[in-house]
Amino acid sequence: MSELELRHLRVIRAVADAGSLSKAAVRLGVSQPALTAQLQRLERRVGGLLFARTGTGVVPTDLGSYVLTTARVLLAEVDDLMAGIKQRTRTAVGAGQLRVGGPPGLIVPLFATAIALRLGGAEAAIDIDMQPAELVRKVLDHKVDFVILEENPGFRTPLPAALHSRVTLSAPLFVALAETHPLAGRGEIDLADLAGESWVVPPVAEGTEQLAFVRACAASGFVPRIKHQMTDSTTTRALVQAGAVTLAKPVAREGNGLVIRAIAGTPLRQEIVLVWHAEHTPADAAEHAPASLLSAYARLTDTNPLFAAWWSEHAPAAATG
């Protein structure tokens, strides 16, 4: 059996306290399908059912009750430990230090550098995490001042009332395929023309991209054949070079056997959401953050010609309130 982590115990506690997956998903800041998938993986990890489904929600099984009892004790001790650490290090975190979180890639360090310069050369630190819910939690726990979320319209990560957010960028998602693919010669590809392809997409538990993708495919009249679910960019690139296809972020880099092509009608978009704490993030930092994030994206216009063309046309109106 694989080891349980603290984040797993928090999920189990949240589901038990809420009494339903939908309510727990709101509390955890994730979608219900993502939470369901995560709980199923946890149950496979421990080798048994943790919750039984009822007509009104879920209740812990005997195994779930056993895990939950110990989880509550451990999490309470960890919360006390973290509170003590936070109290003892609060002065060390002091003025002039800025902490930024977000997904892997170039944009987080570029944003951290840009906003630090706008704030007079403040020291910047970054925190990389694939899971939007974990990033949101870090803002709530004051571990970071800002996080960048890569979201999809209609599938936003729920945010607690204490947090502020702003959609700073809304750009089209593209498709990446091997330069030897039969459709690689097209400048624009209909999503329906990719119905028979083997797709590589991120798992539901690590973002909303797969949910948005499946909805767009349904609107185009087909169910996609998702053969691989992963977020590792190196492995994804290798699979695409071998013949699979995948969605490409707006700033995905073309080359090394891969080409980036537009999807006809722009059925999929990525929203870049900036999140900060309403009370604990310094006001001057919050004021400069959106422009700093846009300036960071401006430095990535050389990643692929499609994003460069989109940026030149839409950048002045890219920030939406």
Rank of each mutant, 00 (worst) to 15 (best):
R72P: 01
R27L: 14
E206C: 11
A133R: 09
T91A: 06
P33T: 13
I189G: 01
T301W: 00
I126R: 01
P305R: 04
A34F: 14
R269G: 01
V30C: 11
I85E: 10
N152C: 07
H314D: 03
L247Q: 06
E77Y: 08
A184M: 09
R261I: 11
G101I: 04
A52H: 15
A278R: 12
A264D: 06
V58T: 04
T208A: 15
L117V: 07
E313M: 12
A264I: 08
A161M: 07
D17F: 13
I126L: 04
V46Q: 04
R41F: 08
A161V: 09
F222R: 00
I128C: 02
R53M: 09
A309S: 12
C217D: 02
G154I: 12
A162S: 07
D190L: 14
G57Q: 05
L268E: 03
G48C: 03
S295P: 00
H288K: 09
G48Q: 09
H288F: 06
D62E: 14
A37Q: 15
V167L: 06
G196F: 14
H280V: 02
A178N: 10
L42F: 14
Y66T: 10
R13A: 15
G120L: 11
A278E: 10
E5W: 08
V275T: 07
R44W: 13
A112I: 04
V275Y: 13
A124Y: 06
V67Y: 11
A116W: 09
L163G: 09
R72S: 10
T303V: 01
S312W: 02
T301P: 01
L9A: 10
L35W: 15
G102M: 04
V204D: 12
A315L: 08
I226E: 05
D302R: 00
A114I: 04
A14N: 03
R261G: 04
L98R: 00
T208D: 06
V201P: 01
A216P: 02
L274A: 06
L119I: 03
E123Q: 09
V46C: 03
D79C: 06
A161Y: 05
A195I: 08
Q38E: 15
T69G: 09
F213D: 00
